[in-house]
Nucleic acid binder design. Sequence first.
RNA 1: GCCACCGUAGCUCAGUGGUAGAGCACACCCUUGGUAAGGGUGAGGUCGAGGGUUCAAUCCCCUUCGGUGGCUCCA
Length: 729
Amino acid sequence: MVRITLPDGSVKEFANAPTVGEVAASIGAGLAKSALGGRVGTTGANLAKDGELVDLAHPIESDSSLAIVTAKNRDGTVSPDALYLLRHSCAHVMAEAIQRLYPGVQLVYGPPLETNFYYDMLFPDGKVMSADDFEKVEAEMAKIVAENRPFTRYELPIADGIAKLEKEGSKFKLDNAQRAVEAGSKSLSWYATGEPGKNWEDLCRGPHVPATGKIGAFKVLSLASSYWKGDEKLDRLTRVYGTAFATKEELEQYARLQEEARRRDHRTLGKQLRLFHIDEMVGQGLILWTPKGSIVRNELQNFIGTELRKQGYHQVYTPHIGKLDLYKTSGHFPYYKESQFPAIVEGDDLTKLCDSGCSCGELVARIDGVSAQFARELNERTGREVIAQDRVMDADKLINGFLLKPMNCPHHAKIFASEPHSYRDLPVRLAEFGTVYRWEQSGELNGMTRVRGFTQDDAHLFVREDQVAEEVLGCLSLVKIIFATLGMHEYRVRVGLRDPDGTKYVGDPANWDKAEQACRDAAKTLGVPFSEEPGEAAFYGPKIDFVVKDVIGRSWQLGTVQVDYNLPVRFDLSYTGQDNKPHRPVMIHRAPFGSMERFGGVLIEHFAGAFPCWLSPEQVRVLPISEKSAAYADELVAALKARGVRASVDHGNDRVQAKIKVAAEEKIPYMAVVGPRDAENRVVSVRARGVEANLGEMPFDAFVSGIAAEIDARLLSGAPGTVQAALTK
RNA sequence: GCCACCGUAGCUCAGUGGUAGAGCACACCCUUGGUAAGGGUGAGGUCGAGGGUUCAAUCCCCUUCGGUGGCUCCA
């Protein structure tokens, strides 16, 4: 007898192991019809977390908990499990369609994802698929769906399965099977779209929807390329993306959201609202902040500057380059050479070297090299061979040069080291909006979110061991203030801990334990879920990262707080303790925004370009009804400007309607319409962005001081205390 | 960096083997209008760059630069 516990707590008993479908049928005919699969687990298990997603035809052998998967949950929400089944199944349908249209295509791997699915395939030599072919593929898929063929699972013992795959000659599927075996599979399973032996089939773990007809709506989305197993030395594959939903409406909804996302894209809005520009001639990944974008950036910097002063930071400035020795000491050169702009070597030196017949390889070695003394000192200090012997060469052979700084920390470490410190002085907190340059691969560049030159809102805290926890907490509270002020709630927190088996970490394990605990405790204070990720720590210390998603769904790391035991050793930093002996400080790196560029890009998307008043490039646009009110309009703008408000008048000879449209397109938070009536009564007629109506009149002075107060308080649009709220209550 | 696609006016985009068009923006004129586009006129482009095929290339081919999507990478 098998006892099945359903989500409502009721228990059903079956004489023999029932399939999920049979359980569904025993509950009701309607459910049996709409069931797509099931989620099973041991009795009482949290199915959403620990349950296994299975086919409708999956037999349940022992007492279990079971939830039947249907397209919609009982509360009407779309079931992610259903989408998973649909997309996984649709990937098979698409693969069959493509193989029909392009004979010789080999299949590799086709998983469902959060919003879509893809299938990697190898096209025979000379054959390519193009976006023009999507319709053809979709038509072929539609036929398969219309045939409503069942997904039929069958299993083979491993030896037989491997033999079958060897006969078929697909190295990719063979490899998939071998990996499944290594992962502990006891047999290999296939899914035929229809009848095994007769219809199309694919080696697959499953699960799938019961039949192709369940796929209500689908679309082939895009083409991309990938490498087999992500290794560029292996075959280059064609990745075909598609998506599937239970209904046409859901697919249309998805398309609408995609469209909306494109409109919110910071690259589109940045151009439309003239916030930034990237110029071919200046270079890829190098952001030119236009006047309007610069205002947003400046406001953000002022905002954070105010908070930093409250928290006892010192502002510093450091140059954009430093000598190679600086980075050889910190370890950033030459180990991260691939992601840096090349070293800057003095022209005359280079000429002399070239004239003397110095080869490129030799040149590189002489730039990368260090003196014996340099190597000895650094290796002694760190207690490890951080400088390998093959980098050591005669001092007179070394070529000196400079590097565009890839990080600010070495400069800040040197500021700390420039004077003696007592334990009483710590923590020393040095902050700088420091611009750094990194050589990102050209294909990775993306608007403002991935660039080659960017300004970190960086700071380095030099603290005593016993101050780490409190200072990490302080850093996080800053992040919290920033996110709260900007109304950003959709972020993920990642606490990077060391890999328990790893050996690459520097520093005392006991200190690591303390620092990791400090990070964990600090993350808890954020009041948002966070994930602990072992192995994600930097080699020099644990860290806390803030990750947000852009409109396209791509994740970007913004803020970061990192504990560092390494640089203080490398730079031989010390302070005098109570015992009058030198002690090693700990460094904390932190950048709440991450970089002004990336944060700016994310912020544009977060607000869809409609910045709160305090951040808006233009805060009030005054719209005189006609030239008769020009003087009154000018008086209003002058009064606003006198209070530091960014305001302008539209003196154009358009009608107010047109002026409103333009101001709305520029996403200006407030419009003040003024005509003879307003002038006579010393009032302004107010409109707020996003509200398609005249909010009413406000006395001249009340409007000016209301706007100024809203800006000073850095309020979000429409929040209590704003002019808009005052007029709409 | 790799693969696919794309590059026409300031912006969004049509279009063609016989040297190019719309809307918006811009300039000027008329209009002085009370809450999301009043009307007219005009200016603006070596069709990303270089090379090739052709009587003729913005269009076809090659190279190159840049962008987009993905892969890889991100101290």
